[in-house]
């Protein structure tokens, strides 16, 4: 279990992590989501003692990461695939890390096999593609057979085959009861693997809940209504608790009242309905809604495109 309590990290004027209190529950896959620059990597680096927090604490199984006798047994970390010397072979890199804990060479051979690096294990790591470097990083994270894995954007820059491989690995590690804390800036990535999500924006926690709950918390489900009597339906339904919008004549999007009632009302008045569809928000749209206000680097292209259209 990884916990943070009031974790804050400032770099000069910038607050990268802002009073973050989270718990990564054991035995589950927790997705750590947020736009680039939200503070995900900084939080993960603090968890394993690479960065010192400005204030607050992070603990791994009840004590600081550096307080453990065998840190590599507690947590396996993949922060970036390039945390190695290019001139050293993959095997030598892993042996050097294993040696610090007295982990035998047989385990080094195992993680090399597990990550499919046998054929390149004795080549210089500098000649590796990003995909292979990522595999080597995962091999290093698995050396101590840790109960918890921290993976920072493990599929970033990988080809589809690499992405599929990482997903499968994460699922099988989770199936063994390991705790997995995995960051991504893509919700689509998480929706397939995570049980629980923590959403971060500008260093602040925006959401911390099971993925299903996050979906349900979407700002109300809506219903799409297509009818030649759209105008009448709208005037009938509209009230302070019901919101009706129309994008084109004959089409309504109704929020605050469910499809069943809309259908019943229409039948009572004898109005014909061509469509009556409940719209559930996708995780992606929930995520975008959550982080909209906290995106650090807003894209200017949409605004300039609009200007171009009106000019």
């Amino acid at each position: 279990m990884i916990e943070t309590q009031g974790l804050t990290k400032r770099f000069g004027q910038t607050t990268a992590v802002d009073n973050l209190t989270i718990t990564v529950q054991p035995g589950s896959v927790t997705g750590f989501l947020g736009p680039n620059g939200a503070g995900k990597s900084t939080t993960m680096r603090i968890m394993v003692g690479l960065d010192n927090p400005t204030s607050g604490v992070a603990t791994v199984n009840g004590r600081s990461y550096e307080g453990h006798q065998a840190p590599l047994r507690e947590v396996g970390v993949l922060l970036d695939a390039k945390a190695l010397h290019k001139g050293r072979s993959a095997r030598a890199h892993l042996r050097a890390l294993a040696a610090t804990h007295g982990i035998p060479n047989s385990r080094v051979a195992e993680v090399i096999g597990l990550t499919g690096l046998e054929s390149v294990a004795d080549k210089r790591a500098g000649s590796f593609s990003l995909g292979m470097s990522q595999r080597l990083g995962i091999a290093a994270a698995l050396l101590g057979d840790p109960a918890t894995l921290i993976l920072d954007e493990p599929v970033n820059g990988l080809d589809p085959e690499g992405v599929a491989w990482v997903r499968m690995l994460v699922r099988s590690l989770a199936a063994e009861g390991r705790t997995i804390f995995i960051s991504s800036h893509l919700m689509s990535e998480m929706s397939q693997t995570a049980d629980h999500v923590i959403v971060l924006g500008r260093g602040k926690m925006l959401a911390d809940m099971p993925i299903g709950e996050l979906l349900a918390s979407a700002s109300g489900t809506a219903t799409r209504v297509r009818s030649p009597h759209a105008a009448e339906i709208a005037s009938l339904l509209i009230s302070p608790s019901v919101q009706v919008t129309s994008e084109e004549p004959g089409l309504l999007v109704v929020k605050g009242v469910d499809a069943v009632r809309i259908g019943e009302e229409a039948a009572r008045h004898g109005w014909i309905l061509h469509e009556l569809t409940p719209i559930t928000s996708s995780l992606e749209s929930v995520y975008l809604e959550l982080t909209e206000s906290s995106v650090q680097y807003h894209s200017q292209s949409a605004a300039s495109a609009n200007q171009g259209a009106t000019a």
Binding site: R73, L97, T100, H101, P104, L114, L142, G144, L169, L173
Partner: peptide, 26 residues
């Protein structure tokens, strides 16, 4: 994908000065 646990007793896997020295030597 299967994860093979470390075969040796868990207690023997931990940090020590000479192990870190061995790592630096490697």
């Amino acid at each position: 994908v299967t994860i093979v646990p470390i075969p040796t007793a868990a207690t023997s896997v931990h940090l020590s000065f000479f192990r870190v020295l061995r790592s630096e030597q490697i």
